[in-house]
Each structure stands twice: as structure tokens, then as C-alpha cells.
């Protein structure tokens, strides 16, 4: 078992009103010095068997066709450290 993490973010040129609302709330909470916030999505995939190149290629395909809409979003795929995952 291994965990693969897919992070999905709106493309940088696309307005993110949710991120802006979060950013505007920060000074009220006493957080200064944060000039921009962008909000995205994180998917944690628990994968059976080894995460080899073929498995990663399939997950990338899944991310590209379903988890992200690449017309408006970018995504990254990374394998989480198995030791860290096992410690949880």
C-alpha cells in the first residue's frame, strides 16, 4: 500500500474568490503579511500494490481526465513517503 497525493489548483490567471475571501479574513485574525491566498484541492489515493511507473502513469491519466479539469486547473502527482504514511 502506498499513498499518492494529487494536488489540484486553479490556473494562476483564473480568479479565485474563495482564496480572496480567506486572505481578507487574515488581518482580522491577527495574521499580517500574507498578500495572497489561493485555495485548491488535495486528493489522497491509497493504492494497492507497488506504485511503479505504470501505476503512476494511470494515476496521472486519472488526474488529467477526472480529478482536474485542465481547461481551468493544474495538477501535480506525488508519491508520499511510505514510512511517514505507515507511522500514522
Amino acid at each position: 500500500m502506498a499513498r499518492v497525493v494529487v494536488d489540484v489548483m486553479l490556473k494562476p490567471e483564473i480568479l479565485d474568490p474563495q482564496g480572496q475571501a480567506v486572505q481578507r479574513a487574515l488581518p482580522r485574525l491577527g495574521f499580517e503579511g500574507v498578500s495572497d491566498v489561493r485555495q485548491g484541492k488535495r486528493f489522497e489515493l491509497e493504492v494497492d500494490g507497488p506504485v511503479d511507473d505504470a501505476a503512476l502513469a494511470r494515476i496521472r491519466e486519472l488526474a488529467e481526465s477526472f480529478l482536474a479539469n485542465t481547461v481551468i486547473e493544474d495538477f501535480t502527482v506525488k508519491v508520499e513517503d511510505e514510512k511517514v504514511g505507515a507511522g500514522k
Binding site: 486553479l10 483564473i14 480568479l15 474568490p17 474563495q18 475571501a21 479539469n69 481547461v71 481551468i72
Partner: peptide
């Protein structure tokens, strides 16, 4: 239709939330 790529572009949350 945009998700199916039959039409270009995409739809997002209203700017006023």
C-alpha cells in the same frame, strides 16, 4: 457540456460567492 469538452472553457463558482 464544458466538462465533456463539447464546448470550450469551463464553469466556476460565482465571483461574489
Amino acid at each position: 457540456l464544458t466538462e465533456a469538452h463539447l464546448l470550450p472553457g469551463g464553469m466556476l463558482g460565482n465571483d461574489h460567492l
